[in-house]
Amino acid sequence: MRTALVLVRHELRLVVSLWLWAARRRHGLDEGTAFGYSRGQGTMMLGFGFVIVIESIMMSVLLRNHPAVQRAWFMLDMYTLLIIIGMHAASVVRPHVLDAGSLRVRRAAHVDLRIPLEKIAHVRRELRTTHERADGELNLAIGAQTTVTLELTEPVAHFTFLGRRRDIRLVRLHADDATDLVQAIKASKATNAIKPA
């Protein structure tokens, strides 16, 4: 039951993301600065959508003598296409957000991790195209690559898609403008360091 609720909530976020995308609005910016990460996946998502459309046409022809199955298959293909478009929309409208006290790291509608700036020990621009799963690491690759690495002073709690807790000490993420994000994080950390207590 819990898994079903998580899936429904995720799909509702995708639908909201479609609405925000159509309205040219973004989610959760408040007073922060947005750093996008969706540029690296646009072509791939377009390719997935194209494959679904072609499959739908071909299956309609193959199943023309079985109208009930044909309609069911068409509805399944349209639902899959909606999910693909929704995932891309979520990536566009839910960017990483840097504000005065934290970095909000996101990926589409299923990862949203707020990292306090004081817990970031080191930040660097680092292009990686391979990511092995390891304890204490969170890899948020887009188009099979990450461009920014964050090393933390202490673990932050991250909850997986189905709610399992993981303590994260190292985060790798993708940003379209990785150099700008790294410089902005360093500048914000420096500003926070010189603020009077």
Rank of each mutant, 00 (worst) to 15 (best):
Q145D: 07
G143V: 10
A34D: 02
L138E: 10
A175M: 10
A141V: 01
F161I: 15
R39F: 10
A68N: 04
Y37S: 05
M78W: 06
G28C: 05
I83T: 06
E137Y: 04
I85G: 04
A190C: 00
D30I: 10
R26S: 13
E137K: 13
G143N: 14
T80G: 12
T130D: 11
F159G: 01
P116E: 03
A144L: 12
H122R: 15
R107V: 03
G47W: 06
T43E: 06
E31D: 15
G42R: 14
L98Q: 03
Q145S: 12
R166K: 14
R106C: 05
L150N: 00
F161A: 08
K195W: 00
P155R: 02
L140C: 07
P196Q: 09
A175P: 13
M1G: 09
S60G: 07
G40H: 14
V156A: 03
I168Q: 06
R133N: 13
L76V: 14
Q183F: 03
R166V: 05
D176E: 08
H174L: 05
G28R: 03
A141W: 01
A100R: 15
F50S: 12
T149L: 13
G42N: 04
I115F: 00
R172T: 14
K195T: 01
A193I: 00
G40P: 14
S38N: 13
A34Y: 07
H96T: 00
L138G: 11
T129E: 06
L162R: 02
V53Q: 04
V61L: 14
V69S: 11
Q145F: 05
P155Y: 03
V148S: 07
Q70L: 03
A144N: 15
M78L: 15
A72P: 02
L98K: 01
D176W: 10
A90I: 07
F35M: 06
R64E: 05
L162M: 10
T160F: 08
D112Y: 08
T153D: 08
S56W: 06
G49E: 10
